[in-house]
Write a protein that binds this DNA or RNA. Sequence first.
DNA 1: TGATCGGCTTGATTATGATCAATTGGAGAT
DNA 2: ATCTCCAATTGATCATAATCAAGCCGATCA
Lengths: 259, 259
Amino acid sequence: MPMRSVDVERVRALPLFRTASARTFDNLIAGGFLQKFPAGTTLLMEGDPVDFLYVLIEGLAELQGTWNDKETTLAVLRPVSTFILAAVVLDADALMTARTIERSDILMISGEAVRRAMKEDAAFAVAVAEELSGCYRGLVRTVKNQKLRGASERLANYLLAEQVSQDRGPSLVLPHEKRVLASLLGMTPENLSRAFANLADYGVVVSGPEVTILRPTVLERLAKPDRLIDSHLQPSAARAGMADRECRASAAGTIAALN
Amino acid sequence: MPMRSVDVERVRALPLFRTASARTFDNLIAGGFLQKFPAGTTLLMEGDPVDFLYVLIEGLAELQGTWNDKETTLAVLRPVSTFILAAVVLDADALMTARTIERSDILMISGEAVRRAMKEDAAFAVAVAEELSGCYRGLVRTVKNQKLRGASERLANYLLAEQVSQDRGPSLVLPHEKRVLASLLGMTPENLSRAFANLADYGVVVSGPEVTILRPTVLERLAKPDRLIDSHLQPSAARAGMADRECRASAAGTIAALN
DNA sequence: TGATCGGCTTGATTATGATCAATTGGAGAT
DNA sequence: ATCTCCAATTGATCATAATCAAGCCGATCA
């Protein structure tokens, strides 16, 4: 329940907390607690009031939305990401359900404390605004991706983005079930299968969760990645800077720190 | 070029500026200027660096995204709204193009000044974070709308939302060309026509830009409006409060204060 | 080893939306 | 008044994605 100091360091290093004063930071984590959840746990339901800011320290989680008995995945979160920030700032009800995909370690920080900290520490308030800006822009990318591209284009761009971010050469490993990916990309599992089949002609080889991109150039000609939609034209220059703060949600939504 | 004091008051009354100190506010508008643009002017192109925070004082504007020679409208802005805030906060390139739809009066405030003001005035930084949270949540609604609903469901919900917000009884007036509405709702103009034709069976009568909803109950049974997607279940209680800060982007994106 | 379950795939069919083409109809210009 | 232009509509066709229905395969477990 008390955090390991390794984890405290990891949280402290997040853009959201890096610039906060020591006092602000201590107050925030003093009232927080770390909890382990098994896979498939619902952390928060759509429509519920939000009492905590969540920080995914270890594991994998997803944010989903529902309407009329249909469900869609809005983002898959990887460590270390914060989520539900917007609802916390406004003290509003959640617009998305948060679920663990794998067993996860999650830090929960009092929403009340976050709002108080913002008022007292301008540097922290600025960091919150920057974080939200990145999240917002991640969603703009998502909407463009969704409205402007077809299913296999979305998949192609997702694969290219993952390949770059995983950095294991020409192949990558899907971080979760294909059904989740299908929902994230806005299609049915059946159509995801067919989309993969299409991409075979473009040098994409699938073997279980492992995907290999044999001819990146050819695939890119189909995918037409765009720096205003996809975050993966990695700014080889100065990754350390502020640009890095824009969350790598990618249109596909992979790393998003959301809500 | 100098603002009329009426307009200064209107800006001052915005949630974004209401809580700022007098000094902060004066600094911000001192370096700003009001400009009139004819209809169809591009204020800012996708990919361009953003030097100003924009405030639409009078008129009508839209935000659009492009990819592969296709265009989509992400939001239609009405007075008084700020836009391009997220890019200003991060000092990043615009992800959307901003265009005037009608002749518009637009206040432009130095982005540099906004970033400085946030660091110096915690109350203003908090207001920025709150504004961004509202915008973010507006986009979450948009994505859910887009991924979970079909075309005529989106149209039906748009109409119900407009009807409520225009408050002129059972009818409403489309605030812009139908082609813009089609793009906003994520469909072609042809399909928007057909969607309107479908809704005739549900008591929707269209006559040019005027739409009348004869049987709201029937239309709602089709639309299934949802407070976690559509903003128009008007919180009859306490509209003055913080909840109101959440931008009424509606899933359809009407009033959004974006980017 | 064999049985079972669930995720994934594949095929056939249907539904939904996009595209192409032609026409209508209204606003503004001559 | 007529012409012109363009948004909007309508119809026909095509493309894309969803649904329905088997089947397959790998993991787990008895």
